[in-house]
Write a protein that binds this DNA or RNA. Structure first.
Length: 830
RNA sequence: GCCCGAGUGGCGGAAUGGCAGACGCAGUGGACUCAAAAUCCACCGGGGGCAACCCCGUGCGAGUUCGACUCUCGCCUCGGGCACCA
């Protein structure tokens, strides 16, 4: 063995942990014992029908990768499990289910890499995940486990698609996808690296395919409104903010810019107040008006540009810092505000999918338009100026503010503050029928089609005569066949389309020969409703049992990562809204409370395989035990912020558990009931209060340090009072469940510690009879004096004036004003 | 560029208007041991003083307050997310 530097040596997770004493703590034995007993005694199985105080404790189900659960998953699950166990001890009937999000492109890509069919690979991964989830001691009710790849599950995913289809919430439309011309296959955005296919490096193109969409954008305003309703949605601010930004509401106007022959270009703008400054127009290259308006002389240039844009992949089109490009169409439109004819251009910085796909360009007051105008020598006219500023001052860079500006060069509107001008111009547009005020959202409809194998087939049949026909509900599920050639290949069709026996079916409507939809649905559809299925996993004839759903939903507490702030959490809300509208469920917001946890870094740096600093939980659990590992994860930083995993730090929580173990041993050997000093009594009550509050707020790190503080005092005071020790064990149980069970049993109990009651405290005993009061003179701490609890201001001042040091700093001056913070501090102002 | 976080000892972090550094790690000294590990005790932001004590200190600069790590305004740095959304 080479002698490395000491830090490296210590940070070896396989280094032996501190050895236990003879009657010591052996985590392996304790943990396997209790995992077996929990299963045998059904400790973690919730009586879903008989519960009187239901608490649905949800965590984000994992995608079963081949690598197994990583430390980030462990952190999230340990944190959510700690909360569930705490709630159970507080008297709730906690339902804590788990499952596997096993469909999707990640699983499929990995299977392709290994050359193993995902249908074979995924069950193996799931088995490994189950083992790990048991190993960390999650309070899971395994009877309700689910996997999205189970036909008993995805039957209902398909059923949900059909409900949306029948309600007109699902529709088909042509949309661009990334296409690799060499592999002849569709690529997901994450498979496009710098505009090229990740597999073969060929530049990626856009192709247009017919795909299925859900009308989530119809729900934009409702999705936004509920976020402001704290009673309905108690969510982490960071998550709610991310959703608001994603939905992207903006208020502006649609304005018509007339062309020749009674036609017009409609634009959307958030700044109608600047309409007098619109000196040119820009259409998205795909805009349908482009071919008709293009002048003969410009036709070639326009066509070339359109082809160029179409050949780019979907990712690099939207990179904002690219130099602007564009082409003049030869057409002119009339600015409705000032009647001037302005040139119409096309450019790829204007996107077809937002607004109307066309803009009025106001280069003086929009950065992008300014850049474009500079490059192509287009006119720039100032229409906003600061008070006192020359209305015709040259524009050196675009000025986009509202507050500080007034309108100039804007006809009758000149002189108005910009905000007022916006309202006035919208009114004028509406009165003269040149436009109207509108609200726009950034959110797009949800494309659920995936030209892939590993997902639930979309339950639609295409018939020559009848068009798209839904698969009858009685024929669900449309089972995903196990096929050998699941890889996308160069045939240019979805893998399922190569299987004629599956592909061709009779039309459910007319009976003639028809073909199935060969795309599968997005994984996010699987995960958009899994929480609904958990309480009803044993029912095969309906997706969610009504009584169960009514009792357990919406979810009481959901804890998960903020990486899902927009997609998963927004799609789940949307699906719940639609199912509610269609009368299938009684609620329209699925998660009453959501808390985002932070992320774990290693020694201050992000974990990554290339850095070689990935924490493999199994190794740590094998060495230190699950209880120590969990406790450390919850201790290393604030749960909602994440924290820094340092190998050296894990010994602290382990030593803490060792000391508790020893205390329990002392307590059994030498039960000194009733022998508690006043000091212990106060600390004990303070700790119970503190730990309870901190757990409620998921402040696990400070809850644990509170428990450590209590333990330290018990040791100092040589206190082994059984009542106190037992309550310490209960409070530790959410963090170290196996350990607490074993201690509880050693203390003579025959039932689970999780059937015990969470300790209560005596508020009166959280403050000492005599308190130490900090004495400040003019805000500087000078001394401390003992006063009785809740001493009055007069008493406190008298005590302070009796103090030698205080008198020295008063220096004979008279106290002008005493400020007392009861039981804490007295400030004497002289 | 926009949005959201965060900047406190050697390190992870605590204190959200009232003793800055709880709790833990690492470190130093001591006890125990033939020795080591484990364990136990003490110390552990910087400077000054024999000492009682005193001064300085929470990214930087102003401000509010009897009192600011905490609140306000203006910067700087780091992390994360979104990004040509008109």
């Amino acid at each position: 063995m080479p002698t490395g530097d000491p830090v490296t040596h210590r940070s070896d997770p396989t280094a032996a942990p501190p050895g236990p004493a003879a009657d010591g703590y052996h985590p392996d034995q304790v943990e396997s014992k209790w995992q077996a007993l929990w299963a045998e005694r059904h400790t973690n199985e919730t009586d879903l029908d008989g519960s009187t105080r239901p608490f649905y404790n949800l965590m984000m189900f994992p995608y079963p990768s081949a690598e197994g659960l990583h430390v980030g998953n462990m952190f999230a699950f340990a944190g959510a499990d700690t909360y569930g166990r705490f709630k159970r001890l507080r008297g709730w009937n906690v339902f804590e289910p788990i499952g596997f999000d096993a469909f999707g492109i990640h699983s499929e890509n990995y299977a392709i890499k290994l050359g193993i069919n995902p249908a074979e690979l995924i069950p193996r991964n799931i088995e490994n995940f189950r083992r790990q989830l048991r190993r960390i001691g999650g309070m899971f009710d395994w009877r309700h486990e689910l996997s999205t790849t189970d036909p008993r599950y995805y039957k209902w995913t398909q059923w949900i698609f059909l409900q949306l289809f029948k309600a007109g919430k699902a529709y088909r439309k042509a949309a661009p996808v990334n296409w690799c011309p060499s592999c002849k296959t569709v690529l997901a955005n994450e498979q496009v690296i710098n505009g090229a296919c990740e597999r073969c490096g060929t530049p990626v193109e856009q192709r247009t395919l017919e795909q299925w969409f859900f009308r989530i954008s119809d729900y934009a305003q409702r999705l936004l409104d509920d976020l402001d309703d704290k009673g309905k949605m108690d969510w982490s601010d960071s998550t709610a903010t991310a959703q608001r930004n994603w939905i992207g509401r903006s208020e502006g106007a649609e304005i018509d810019f007339p062309l020749e022959h009674d036609r017009a270009i409609q634009v959307y703008t958030t700044r109608p107040d600047t309409v007098f400054g619109a000196t040119f127009m820009v259409l998205a290259p795909e805009h349908p008006l482009v071919p008709e308006i293009t002048a003969a002389a410009q036709r070639d240039a326009v066509e070339t540009y359109r082809r160029q844009v179409a050949s780019k992949d979907l990712v690099s089109r939207k990179v904002g810092d690219r130099e602007k490009t564009g082409v003049f169409t030869g057409a002119f439109a009339k600015n409705p505000a000032n009647g001037r004819m302005i040139p119409v251009w096309i450019a790829d910085y204007v996107l077809m999918e937002y607004g109307t796909g066309a803009i009025m360009a106001v280069p003086a007051h929009d950065e992008r338009d300014f850049e474009f105008a500079r490059k192509y020598g287009l006119r720039i006219v100032r229409v906003l100026a600061r008070p006192g500023q020359d209305p015709d001052a040259p524009v050196e860079q675009s000025e986009t503010g509202v507050e500080e500006f007034r309108l100039v060069n804007s006809g009758e509107f000149s002189g108005m503050p910009a905000a007022e001008g916006k309202t006035a111009i919208i009114r004028w547009l509406e009165e003269t029928e040149r436009g109207k005020g509108v609200v726009q959202y950034r959110i797009h409809d949800w494309c659920i089609s995936r030209q892939r194998y590993w997902g639930p087939p979309i339950p639609i049949i295409y018939c020559q005569g009848c068009g798209p026909v839904p698969v009858p509900e009685k024929d669900l599920p449309v089972v995903l066949p196990v096929i050998e050639d699941f890889r996308p290949d160069d045939s240019g069709v979805s893998p399922l389309a190569r299987h004629e026996e599956w592909y061709y079916v009779d039309c459910p409507a007319c009976g003639s020969r028809a073909r199935r939809e060969t795309d599968v649905s997005d994984t996010f559809l699987d995960s958009a409703w899994y929480y609904l299925r958990y309480p009803s996993t044993e029912f095969d004839d309906h997706p969610f049992d009504h009584a169960r759903t009514r009792k357990w939903l919406p979810v009481t507490s959901y804890i998960g990562g903020n990486e899902h702030a927009v997609l998963h959490l927004l799609y789940s809300r949307f699906i719940a809204m639609v199912l509610h509208e269609l009368g299938h469920i009684h609620f329209d917001e699925p998660f009453a409370k959501f808390r985002a946890h932070g992320i774990i870094v290693k020694d201050g740096a992000k974990m990554s395989k290339s850095r070689g600093n990935v924490v493999i939980p199994d190794e740590y659990i094998a060495r230190w035990g699950a209880d120590t590992f969990r406790t450390y994860l919850m201790f290393l930083g604030p749960f909602q912020d994440g924290g820094d995993f340092q190998d050296a730090g894990i010994s602290g929580p382990r030593r803490f558990l060792e000391k508790v173990w020893q205390l329990v041993g002392d307590c059994i050997r030498d039960d000194a009931s009733g022998e508690t000093t006043h000091k212990v009594l106060v600390k004990w009550n303070q700790t119970k209060k503190h730990v309870t509050h901190e757990l409620e707020d998921l402040k696990y790190n400070t809850a644990i340090s509170g428990l450590m503080g209590l333990l330290n005092l018990l040791r100092e005071e040589n206190c082994r009072e059984k009542h106190v020790v037992q309550e310490l064990v209960i409070m530790l149980a959410p963090f170290a469940p196996h350990f607490a069970e074993e201690c509880w049993e050693r203390l003579g109990h025959r039932t689970s510690v999780f059937d015990a009651h969470w300790p209560s405290w005596d508020e009166h005993l959280t403050v000492e009879h005599m308190v130490e009061l900090v004495v400040q003179v003019n805000g500087k701490t000078r001394s401390k004096v003992q006063v009785r609890r809740d001493a009055s201001e007069d008493e406190a001042v008298a005590a302070a004036l009796a103090d030698e040091t205080v008198r020295r700093f008063l220096d004979g001056k008279e106290v002008r004003k005493p400020i007392l913070v009861p039981n804490r501090l007295l400030n004497l102002v002289v």
